[in-house]
C-alpha cells in the first residue's frame, strides 16, 4: 500500500539511533530555535486575539467609538487582527526558511550518511563524545 519511500509508517526506522540524533548538538539547536520562535510568537498572537475578544465582549462603549465616519474602533481592531495574522505568517515563513530548513537538512544528510547508525561502531561512539556536552 502506498509509496514506501514517503510513508511515515508507525513502525520504527530500523537503522537510525534516534536517541543519538536527539541529543546531538545540531538537533538540540534546531529544537531550541524552533521552540524559542514558535512558543512566544504564538503566545503573543493568542493573547492579542483574546484581548480583542474580551474588548468586543465587555467594552462595548470603547468598541463603538466612531473613528472615520461610521467606521468604529471594533471594525478597525477586527481588521487589525487580519493584518497581524498576515504579518506573522510572512515572518514565520521567512524565519523557517532561513533557520529551520538548513538545520533540518543538515541533520537529515548526516543520518542518511550513517553517522547515527545503531551498530555500535566508530560513528556511534563519535556521537557519544558530544553527548556529554548536552543537557
Amino acid at each position: 500500500m502506498g509509496n514506501d519511500a514517503l510513508s511515515a509508517e508507525t513502525g520504527t526506522i530500523p537503522d537510525v539511533d534516534f536517541r543519538a540524533v536527539q541529543v546531538s548538538p545540531e538537533f538540540q539547536k534546531l529544537r531550541r530555535t524552533h521552540r524559542s520562535f514558535v512558543f512566544p510568537v504564538l503566545g503573543a498572537c493568542l493573547a492579542w486575539y483574546i484581548v480583542y475578544v474580551l474588548l468586543a465582549g465587555y467594552a462595548h462603549d470603547f468598541m463603538s467609538t466612531p473613528v472615520f465616519g461610521s467606521i468604529n474602533v471594533a471594525m478597525l481592531l477586527g481588521l487589525a487582527q487580519v493584518v497581524t495574522t498576515f504579518a506573522v505568517t510572512m515572518w514565520y515563513v521567512h524565519f523557517a526558511n532561513k533557520h529551520f530548513d538548513p538545520l533540518a537538512e543538515q541533520i537529515r544528510d548526516e543520518v542518511e550518511s550513517g553517522v547515527f547508525g545503531t551498530d555500535a561502531s566508530a560513528s556511534a561512539s563519535g556521537v557519544g563524545v558530544t553527548e556529554g556536552g548536552v543537557r
Binding site: 540524533v21 538537533f27 524552533h34 541533520i107
Partner: peptide
C-alpha cells in the same frame, strides 16, 4: 526520541536527498 527527531527534521517523510 524518534517522534521528536522526525517531526522536526522530516527524516523518513522527506524524499532522500
Amino acid at each position: 526520541s524518534e517522534m521528536e527527531v522526525r517531526s522536526l527534521t522530516g527524516i523518513g517523510a522527506e524524499k532522500a536527498t
